[in-house]
Amino acid sequence: MIAEATADAMQLLLTGDPALWEIIMISLSVSGRALFLCLPAGIALAFLLSYLEFPGRRLVVVMFQTLMSIPAVVIGLTVYLLLSRHGPFGDLKLLFSQTAMVVGQMMLSFPIIVALGYAAFQAAGRRGWETARTLGAGRIRAFFALLHEVRFGLFVAFAAAFGRIISEVGVSMMVGGNILGYTRNIPTAIALESSKGEFAQGIALGFVLMLIALVLNMSLHFFQGREPVIV
């Protein structure tokens, strides 16, 4: 049965099945938007946590590190309660929309970017920042110089966050509603097709998820070149 389903899955992928590719594009679009929306704020916060001394800084860091492993379904439930008709943002009527999925995935990826970004900046230490400043760079220029220094670490944060949200089911299912052609993405489609006993599409979409992971990791290696990883 597995061999037969796998053969069917390959056929679906290679023939460019429109329903399959629509699901893939929704996944990439929602997760891509979520990541790019929270990336600047996540990196900025990671930087501030690394270089700014303030009371409770360590507590904030520990909080974000803890939030990295929060179950997606808990985030899904939180966003659901916030956006449901009787919730504080019910009037916005965002439940079961791609926007709701983007919000939920942002809440999932933000702690990962902050925690891993923080680790990358910490690894670079204060000397990079101080050297740029003492050589005459303004704050903005020194910040970008430092971003360049920790780029591999930040790319790892990006890849980890993307890997987490592209494959999560909890948020997408609870606040997206798994609506065909609108909010049905790769993980929710796999869950649905498997529950119906239609394994071919599930396996095909599983291949796509693995391919995305492979492309991310290969691009990380390509990006690093021969230089050592900072984190």
Binding site: G125, G128, G136, E149
Partner: peptide
């Protein structure tokens, strides 16, 4: 610094950084 911080890149990149900033 006692242990100098050099930016990633070549020697020339490091010299150019000081000039460009």
């Amino acid at each position: 610094h006692q242990r100098p911080y050099l930016f990633s890149g070549t020697v020339l990149d490091n010299l150019r950084f000081a000039l460009s900033v």
